[in-house]
């Protein structure tokens, strides 16, 4: 228990360190000019590579931290809006690395299939809203799935450290901090963001956005045989 408490504190310090270090070093003028671009995946105001990075160190750190806060607030809204759904999605990720790998695979396969369907749907004039709708669904799935992943990660660490009796917001906050810190590592962060999004899509779609409904055609069979 004591070891896990040290681990939790260490992870918090490491995540904050990653955020601050990436803001101070990577967003520093000369490095920023050399490396900036979509692959860098920086936070507020620079993710498209079309806007100059802020020059002052405090301003750079402030922008990174504001990105963290906004991400936490979005997670908070989702958790309050649909707590049971978030809980079910988090439970589907609770089987350790195997469950996370399975969600990642489901997300990857669904995304590939949906991308193909989007391209095929664009060939028909009457299907033109389909690409927009499917893109929005994938985005929402990634968003709520990553919130569930953050909550599960925080809950796991706090349970091991015997701090799980604290508010669920502590789990959500801890998970968000860790995931946000990982996505701020230059270039590697892009891969992390992609992997997290795909895992989130997998968790959301495999549980039908955390509902109790199953992916099954059984209701259709029941109706026809009745």
């Amino acid at each position: 228990m004591r070891t896990w408490r040290v681990v939790v504190v260490g992870v918090v310090i490491l995540s904050l360190g990653l955020i601050v270090a990436s803001a101070l070093l990577f967003d520093w003028g000369p490095l920023w000019r050399a490396w900036r671009g979509p692959l860098a995946v920086r936070s507020v105001g620079s993710w498209m590579g079309g806007i100059d990075a802020p020059q002052g160190p405090l301003q750079r750190v402030g922008l990174q931290l504001s990105g963290l806060v906004s991400q936490f607030l979005v997670a908070l809204l989702i958790a309050y809006a649909a707590p049971r759904h978030v809980r079910r999605m988090a439970d589907s990720l609770s089987g350790g690395s195997r469950a996370i790998a399975r969600s990642f695979a489901i997300g990857l396969l669904f995304t590939v299939a949906l991308a193909a369907i989007i391209l095929l749907a664009s060939l028909s004039v009457h299907m033109f809203p389909v690409p927009i709708l499917l893109s929005v669904i994938v985005f929402l799935a990634a968003l709520v799935g990553v919130v569930a992943l953050a909550y599960q990660m925080g809950r796991l660490l706090l349970t091991r450290a015997a701090w799980a009796h604290e508010s669920p917001l502590a789990s959500l906050g801890l998970g968000t901090l860790i995931l946000y810190g990982l996505t701020q590592v230059p270039f590697f962060g892009l891969l992390v963001l992609l992997a997290l999004s795909l895992t989130g899509v997998g968790a959301a779609l495999s549980t039908r956005f955390g509902s109790r409904e199953r992916w099954s055609l059984a209701p259709l069979v029941e109706e026809t045989s009745a």
Binding site: A105, I106, L109, V112, T207, R214, W215
Partner: peptide, 17 residues
């Protein structure tokens, strides 16, 4: 590509369920 991807995803979802 779409059909096998959906089929594989459905198989994995069944495992989760």
């Amino acid at each position: 590509i779409a059909v096998p991807a959906l089929s594989a995803a459905a198989g994995l979802v069944r495992d989760v369920q």
